[in-house]
Amino acid sequence: DVEEQIRRLEEVLKKNQPVTWNGTTYTDPNEIKKVIEELRK
């Protein structure tokens, strides 16, 4: 469920934690926001 994935990513973003997505770890909040934007398409 895309909405659920977006919610999880936004939670991690608020906590300033790194996100691992498709084998890539993102630590930059701007990169995480880009992943969220991609999911919304």
Rank of each mutant, 00 (worst) to 15 (best):
Q5E: 09
I6R: 01
G23K: 01
W21H: 07
E10P: 00
P29Q: 07
E3G: 10
L9Q: 00
V19I: 14
V19H: 04
D1Q: 08
P29K: 08
D28T: 09
V35R: 03
I32D: 00
I6G: 01
R7V: 04
V19D: 03
L13I: 13
E4Y: 13
E10H: 05
E31G: 04
G23I: 00
Q5D: 10
K33E: 08
L13S: 04
N22S: 04
N22Q: 11
E4G: 06
E3D: 12
G23R: 00
D28H: 08
I36D: 00
E3W: 15
R8M: 15
E38Q: 12
Q5F: 14
K15Q: 13
T27K: 05
D1V: 09
K14L: 12
R40K: 09
N22V: 02
P29Y: 06
E3Y: 15
I32K: 00
Y26Q: 00
R40H: 04
K34E: 05
W21Y: 12
E11Y: 05
R40V: 05
T25G: 02
E37C: 10
Q5A: 12
L39I: 05
Q17E: 15
K34T: 06
L39P: 00
E31Q: 09
Q17T: 08
Q17M: 15
V19K: 01
N22G: 12
K15M: 14
E4P: 03
L9H: 00
E11M: 13
E31W: 02
V19F: 14
N16M: 09
G23T: 01
L39D: 00
I6A: 04
E4S: 10
R40F: 04
E3F: 14
I32W: 03
L13D: 01
E31P: 01
V12D: 12
K14A: 14
D28F: 03
W21C: 05
P18K: 10
I36Y: 02
R7F: 06
K41G: 09
T27V: 07
L9P: 00
V2M: 08
T20E: 15
T25P: 02
T24Q: 13
V35H: 02
T27D: 06
T20L: 13
K14H: 11
N16I: 03
K15R: 13
K34P: 01
L39G: 00
V19E: 03
T25E: 07
T20R: 08
E11C: 12
K33W: 14
L39K: 00
R40I: 06
K14Q: 12
I36F: 04
T24F: 12
Y26G: 01
T27R: 05
W21R: 02
E3T: 10
E4K: 06
L13R: 03
L9Y: 02
L13Q: 03
G23H: 03
N16S: 08
I36H: 00
K34S: 07
T25Q: 05
L39M: 09
L39S: 01
K14D: 11
W21A: 03
E10A: 05
K33Q: 10
V35M: 11
E3S: 09
K14M: 13
K34L: 11
N16Q: 09
P18R: 05
E11H: 07
D28Q: 06
P18W: 07
P18C: 12
R7W: 07
T25N: 04
T24C: 05
E11N: 07
K15V: 05
I6S: 02
K15G: 08
I6H: 01
V19G: 04
L9E: 01
W21I: 14
I6T: 02
E37N: 08
R7Y: 05
R8H: 13
R8V: 14
E38A: 14
N30D: 14
E4D: 12
Q17Y: 15
D28L: 05
K41H: 10
P18A: 10
R40E: 03
N16A: 07
Q17C: 11
K14W: 13
E4A: 10
E38P: 00
V2N: 05
R8D: 06
K14P: 02
V19W: 15
T24Y: 10
Q17D: 07
L13C: 04
D1R: 11
T25C: 05
I32H: 00
V19M: 09
Y26L: 13
Q17G: 10
L9D: 00
E31V: 07
T27A: 06
I36N: 00
I36W: 03
K41M: 13
R7T: 06
P29G: 05
T20I: 15
K14G: 09
K34H: 08
K33R: 15
K34R: 12
Q17N: 07
Y26I: 11
L9K: 00
T24V: 15
P29H: 08
L13G: 02
R40N: 03
I36A: 01
T25V: 13
E10M: 14
E38F: 15
P18H: 08
T24L: 10
V2A: 07
V19L: 14
V2L: 12
K34N: 07
L39V: 03
I36E: 00
T25W: 09
R8Q: 15
R8P: 01
T24K: 10
Q5M: 15
G23Y: 02
T20H: 14
E31D: 14
T20P: 02
E37S: 07
P29M: 14
T27Q: 06
T24N: 10
Y26S: 01
Y26D: 00
E4F: 11
K41P: 02
W21T: 02
N30G: 10
V12Y: 15
D28M: 04
P29C: 05
E4W: 12
K15E: 08
V35A: 04
K33S: 07
Y26F: 08
N22K: 08
D1K: 10
I36Q: 01
T25F: 12
T25K: 04
E37F: 09
Y26W: 04
V2P: 06
W21L: 12
Q5P: 01
